[in-house]
């Protein structure tokens, strides 16, 4: 895409500053989304200013940018929405964390899902506990009855741990499944 240039240096500076702010606001998005959004706004500004005379460039440009609004406000919903799409498409934890941060004020659903992600990540602690306290961490049963899964100190006599070396793979499997399911819920929530 060709860059728009202005005859008036002040107009050029106003334009460059505005798009510097736009770039800052959308830096969190994928390269494709950043390019798409910037192109769309630049195209809009070009169409609105292309018939302006050099004397009126600043006035017309200012008017267009005012009508578009402050990038920090205008782009927030689009950035939040695109980030959720990127996160639920890639399943990348970094994108998911960023998407939740951007959308946390958009409803209780996002708060609940963020809490579930937090719970999933704390589940990973069991792996470390299994190495530090192997005899107190696992899936415990007593007389064919389930006592508990996790790190349990106060157990009835005669209990035994049934998973053994499979405990860590089971925890990892549970975390992966819970993560995938929660991310699919996040995708559904965005569509609502």
């Amino acid at each position: 895409m060709k860059e728009q240039t202005f005859n008036n240096q002040t107009a050029q500076k106003i334009y460059d500053d505005y798009f510097k702010r736009v770039r800052r606001c959308i830096a969190i998005l994928s390269e494709d989304d950043q390019r798409e959004l910037t192109m769309e706004l630049k195209s809009h500004v070009y169409e609105a200013t292309r018939n302006s005379t050099p004397e009126r460039e600043i006035d017309i440009l200012m008017d267009v940018l005012n009508k578009l609004g402050m990038p920090e406000e205008v782009l927030q919903p689009m950035v939040a929405d695109k980030k959720i799409r990127q996160a639920t498409r890639t399943f990348n934890p970094r994108h998911i964390l960023q998407a939740l941060t951007l959308n946390i004020t958009n409803g209780a659903g996002y708060v609940v899902l963020a809490a579930i992600y937090l719970l999933i990540s704390t589940f990973g602690l069991l792996i470390f506990l299994k190495f530090i306290h192997p005899s107190d961490t696992g899936l415990f049963v007593s007389n064919g009855r389930l006592i508990g899964f996790g790190f349990i100190l106060d157990r009835p006599a005669g209990n035994r741990e049934v998973l053994g070396n499979m405990f860590v793979p089971v925890v990892i499997m549970i975390m992966i499944i819970a993560y995938l399911l929660n991310t699919l819920l996040l995708r559904l929530l965005r569509r609502k």
Binding site: L41, H44, V64, K67, L68, G69, E73, P77, M78, D81
Partner: peptide, 15 residues
């Protein structure tokens, strides 16, 4: 129309 609101809306409709 607040032009700034148009693009988020179009983006939403496209999604």
């Amino acid at each position: 129309v607040a032009e700034g609101t148009l693009y988020p809306l179009l983006n939403r409709l496209k999604t």
